[in-house]
């Protein structure tokens, strides 16, 4: 068990049955009362943030959570298959757990997988990926005014809006958090 003196950023604790990670904390103390730690925590399953005033001496249950670096291998009907990069163990993670971010999860990419009580509950991609453009309409002229864009496809099948000068074979940098094109980094 932890107590409030163990609280620091990134500490993983159980609260009301869910695992939380400490985002921020602050010493507070009413003049004539016990010391408290005002703690902002993020629910590791839902991302919801809540604030709790934890009284000094309050016991905190450690959350059985673990983050592993895993390589994405391939997808099947309803799951994605990942391999632990140190043990080579493979796990199937439901597509629903990965969600829409699979658009930016090309094969062989390394991701961070969060396990809670031994079960994979969240997959985090790197913030940026570099991908080759595999499909672009050569005849697409778009609006030639400054800032005009056209859609292209990357290997995952995701469609990205890019500037008109991008063509098939170009390698582009994409922000996985919002799917936005950032820059051209070269040609494959």
């Amino acid at each position: 068990m932890y107590d409030t003196s163990d609280i620091r950023k990134g500490l993983k604790i159980m609260l009301d049955g869910s695992p939380y990670t400490v985002v921020e904390f602050q010493f507070v103390k009413p003049g004539k009362g016990a010391a408290f730690t005002r703690t902002k925590m993020k629910n590791l399953l839902t991302g919801a943030v809540l604030e709790r005033n934890l009284r000094s001496g309050e016991r905190l249950e450690p959350a059985d959570v673990e983050t592993k670096t895993m390589q994405y291998l391939y997808g099947d009907a309803d799951s994605f298959v990942f391999m632990d990069t140190t043990t080579y163990d493979q796990v199937h993670i439901p597509k629903s757990t990965v969600g829409d971010q699979s658009d930016f999860m090309p094969e062989n990419i390394n991701v961070e997988v969060l396990f809670f009580n031994g079960r994979a509950v969240d997959v985090s991609l790197p913030n940026f990926i570099e991908q080759k453009v595999v499909e672009a309409d050569p005849g697409f002229r778009g609006d030639t005014a400054t800032g005009a864009t056209k859609p292209v496809k990357i290997s995952t099948g995701a469609s990205i809006n890019v500037p008109l000068f991008i063509s098939i074979g170009d390698v582009i940098k994409i922000d996985t958090r919002n799917g936005q094109y950032l820059e051209r980094v070269g040609r494959a």
């Binding site: 507070v28 009413p30 004539k32 009362g33 016990a34 408290f36 709790r52 005033n53 009284r55 309050e58």
Partner: peptide, 22 residues
């Protein structure tokens, strides 16, 4: 109010105070 393990009168009081009053 999430009173946790607070049992002493003043500990419960200040949990409410910090959570709601302050």
């Amino acid at each position: 109010v999430a009173v946790g393990s607070a049992e002493a009168w003043d500990d419960v009081f200040y949990q409410v105070f910090l959570d709601r009053i302050e």
